[in-house]
């Protein structure tokens, strides 16, 4: 009996992962797209129910409350949104997913900080990657949402010294990461790294024009997959690693297809505001 439940959970994860692959495959063709979406949703349901059976999961009230609140908010948002606002809706949802992955990494860091366990090098590296990718996804998606929703100007926003600031932030992130590898239980440095990641997400999307936002959201969707995968490495959980990698890889391919459809290259979309400014503003 003691082995029955953990084995059952792992097997359920295997089924769920397979359903994700089949669902995504079906989503790519018009005749089967709707069925594919349902298949993936069934996979997600199985994965969540299986996780609730985990013996380490004790706070049922808290968890169910979270699931109910999230479901209600998600359903309201899905039914209220206008058809014309779909791309920014996906952007917003995507940001929340990236935010969740970041929070998982921060929560795991906090747990390790207050336990007697030593933090291994692997742990530190995966947590750093997780907050970096997840943080960029969170704020980048929110800026993309704001641009499409016209909460802020859709034109590329550049300011003096933008590139030097980006480079400085990246260097700061690398230095902080290096420090954390030596002294893994330093909450201040960890929080600074989280802050830099969030800032990088904003700075990454600001210089990109509103017409290119769908491509950016697709790229950030790929990032949110990688963020989930990184969170999977932090918790050493296969279903997170596999599903995240699936979304990450298919998201990149889809992004390239979308770029091709617009006769653009991905690099001209991302860095157009810096190099060929005229080209970028005329695109899309």
């Amino acid at each position: 009996m003691s082995n029955f439940i953990p084995t059952g959970i792992e097997l359920s994860y295997l089924v769920a992962t397979a359903l994700f692959f089949v669902g995504l495959k079906n989503l790519g063709s018009p005749a089967t797209a709707r069925k594919g979406n349902v298949i993936a949703a069934v996979g997600m349901f199985i994965a969540i129910v299986a996780t609730l059976l985990n013996q380490g999961v004790l706070n049922y009230e808290l968890i169910l409350l979270g699931i109910v609140i999230g479901s209600v908010l998600g359903a309201i948002a899905a039914y209220k949104v206008e058809m014309t606002s779909m791309p920014q809706m996906v952007g917003l949802l995507n940001g929340l997913g990236g935010g969740a992955s970041t929070l998982v990494a921060v929560a795991e860091f906090w747990r390790l900080l207050h336990s007697v366990e030593t933090v291994s090098l692997d742990n530190t590296i995966t947590m750093i990657l997780s907050i970096l990718i997840g943080g960029i996804t969170l704020t980048g998606s929110f800026v993309a949402f704001a641009k499409l929703q016209e909460l802020m100007s859709g034109s590329p926003i550049t300011f003096p010294l933008q590139q030097p600031i980006n480079v400085l932030l990246l260097i700061g992130f690398l230095v902080g990461s290096g420090y954390l590898l030596i002294a893994p239980k330093d909450p201040t440095v960890f929080l600074i790294l989280t802050g830099i990641s969030l800032l990088l997400g904003v700075l990454f999307v600001l210089p990109i024009g509103g017409a290119d936002m769908p491509v950016v959201i697709s790229l950030l969707n790929s990032f949110s997959g990688l963020a989930a995968s990184a969170a999977g490495f932090v918790l050493m959980n296969n279903i997170l690693i596999i599903s995240g990698a699936l979304v990450g890889a298919s998201g990149i391919i889809l992004t390239q297809i979308m770029c091709k459809g617009m006769n653009r290259t991905l690099s001209s979309v991302l860095f157009g505001a810096f190099g060929g400014g005229a080209k970028a503003s005329g695109g899309g």
Partner: peptide, 10 residues
């Protein structure tokens, strides 16, 4: 759809 799958972070 693939974005919903990345919600596996749940």
């Amino acid at each position: 759809g693939s974005n919903a799958i990345s919600g596996i972070a749940v």
